[in-house]
Design a protein around this nucleic acid. Structure first.
Lengths: 146, 146
DNA sequence: CTATGTGCAAATCTTTTGCAGGCTA
DNA sequence: TAGCCTGCAAAAGATTTGCACATAG
């Protein structure tokens, strides 16, 4: 249910986190820097729920309130640093990769991961109905344990 | 936000609704028959939210409680009569078409509709990771007014 | 008649918000 | 210093559940 593999919260990770915030002109408060470090401190893409990130912060020793985690994830999305992915009607997932790419959703563990790059392609896409344009195409490959 | 075009609740629609329930061996109570008539009474596919169906029932004169609408939609899904579609983290949508097909999601009106049949095709799909199989591939084309 | 469904209200769960105090630029 | 940020608790929505009553087969 939660992504347990977060970046370690060391100085290197903190620097990377702060650089990430600076790139989007997001003010680096203590809480935001910690969360950023957990998210991008090791250069990996992450798919998190608010609850998962909250628990990760807590167990890494950084006390951040759940409300702040929500507000911060929202702020990161508004700043273009993350994307919200809709795969489950009851929970929001946030992705540190902001490009439009396909996902695997593991129905057993409720985990969200990237589908292998370049392995999904459309051969046909409809023209958008008149007066509209395609904002994004979400592809979620739902996996079930066999 | 809600689908306002529901089938009229006349005798023909009721018969169709009851037949639909019978096909899946779902007990045709008064409320279920009414909701089924609204959903499939005219043979069209429908994409509804619980709230939307609840309001449609109410304005067609059939008093059904919101809790029952939720329970009923859940029951229809369990019986294989409908599918839940995840497009919005805050609301659940239900589709009377149970085949795996792509959708348009109109971001302005929050409406969900079918994308034109046959207009979406994959040229490549990844092999499912070992030990897993693909349960479904959700494709949601998000549209924005231009 | 018996199992199942219904309605209401209350509970639950996720996410947002108001406000007083804290911290960054 | 001024304005944005944080934390807490409370609010807000969507959905589910407990329980007494109703009803289909």
């Amino acid at each position: 249910m939660m992504d347990t593999s977060f970046a370690a919260l060391d100085d290197t990770a903190l620097q990377k986190g702060k650089a990430w915030l600076a790139r989007a002109k997001v003010r680096p408060t203590k809480q935001r820097s910690s969360l950023a470090a957990l998210l991008v401190g090791d250069g990996e893409n992450r798919h998190v729920t608010a609850e998962g990130l909250f628990l990760a912060a807590k167990s890494s020793g950084e006390a951040v309130s759940l409300a702040t985690v929500y507000n911060t994830l929202r702020a990161f999305c508004d700043a273009g640093l993350m994307n919200e992915i809709t795969v489950d009607a009851t929970r929001s997932y946030f992705d540190t990769c902001t490009e439009d790419h396909p996902h695997y959703f593991w129905e057993d563990s409720q985990e969200l991961t990237d589908a292998p790059a370049g392995e999904v392609a459309f051969s046909r896409l409809p023209d958008p109905p008149q007066g509209s344009e395609i904002a994004r195409v979400d592809v979620v490959i739902r996996l079930r344990r066999k």
